[in-house]
C-alpha cells in the first residue's frame, strides 16, 4: 500500500462527498462517480500488493486476482448506475427545465400546516 494511493482515495472520497451534498443532480452524479472511483481504488490499495499479472506462467510476485475481479465488477455496476442516473437527470430536465432534487411534497405540506399532528421525531 502506498501513501499516494491512500491520499488519492481520501481526496476522491472527500470531493465526492462534497458534490453529493448538492441539490443539482448533475453534481450529485459527478460526486457519485468520484466516490465510486475512490472505492474502486480503495479495493486495489487495501486488497493487493503489486506484482505481475496473475496468469499461469508469470514470474513469482503475482498480484492477487480477486481484488481486480472485484474492481472490474464494481466498475461495470457504477457504469450502469451512472448512465441510469444521467438519463434520469435528462428526463427531469425535459420535464421542468432543471435537475434539482426537490423535497417531498407531502413532507413540505406537513411542515407547513400547523394544525396537522406533525411528527416531532422525524427530521426532514
Amino acid at each position: 500500500m502506498s501513501f499516494t494511493q491512500a491520499a488519492l482515495v481520501a481526496v476522491l472520497a472527500g470531493a465526492g462527498t462534497y458534490l453529493v451534498m448538492h441539490r443539482t443532480l448533475t453534481r450529485i452524479i459527478l460526486g457519485l462517480g468520484m466516490l465510486g472511483n475512490a472505492v474502486n481504488l480503495l479495493i486495489l490499495t487495501a486488497g493487493s500488493s503489486p506484482g505481475n499479472a496473475p496468469i499461469v506462467g508469470e514470474q513469482a510476485p503475482v498480484a492477487d486476482p480477486v481484488p481486480q475481479a472485484l474492481v472490474l465488477t464494481s466498475i461495470v455496476i457504477t457504469f450502469g448506475v451512472m448512465s441510469f442516473l444521467l438519463s434520469m437527470a435528462y428526463r427531469g430536465w425535459t420535464i421542468d427545465g432543471n435537475d434539482e432534487v426537490e423535497d417531498d411534497i407531502t413532507d413540505r405540506r406537513l411542515a407547513e400546516e400547523p394544525g396537522e399532528p406533525v411528527d416531532h421525531g422525524e427530521p426532514t
Binding site: L32, V39, I43, A46, G47, P67, L70, V81, L85, V101
Partner: peptide, 23 residues
C-alpha cells in the same frame, strides 16, 4: 432520484465494507 442516489451511496458503503473485509 432520492431512492437511486441513496441506494448508490449504500452500495458504495457496502463495497467499501467488502473491500476492507477482504483486506
Amino acid at each position: 432520484t432520492t431512492y437511486v442516489v441513496l441506494n448508490v451511496v449504500e452500495s458504495l458503503v457496502l463495497v467499501t465494507g467488502v473491500a476492507l473485509v477482504f483486506a
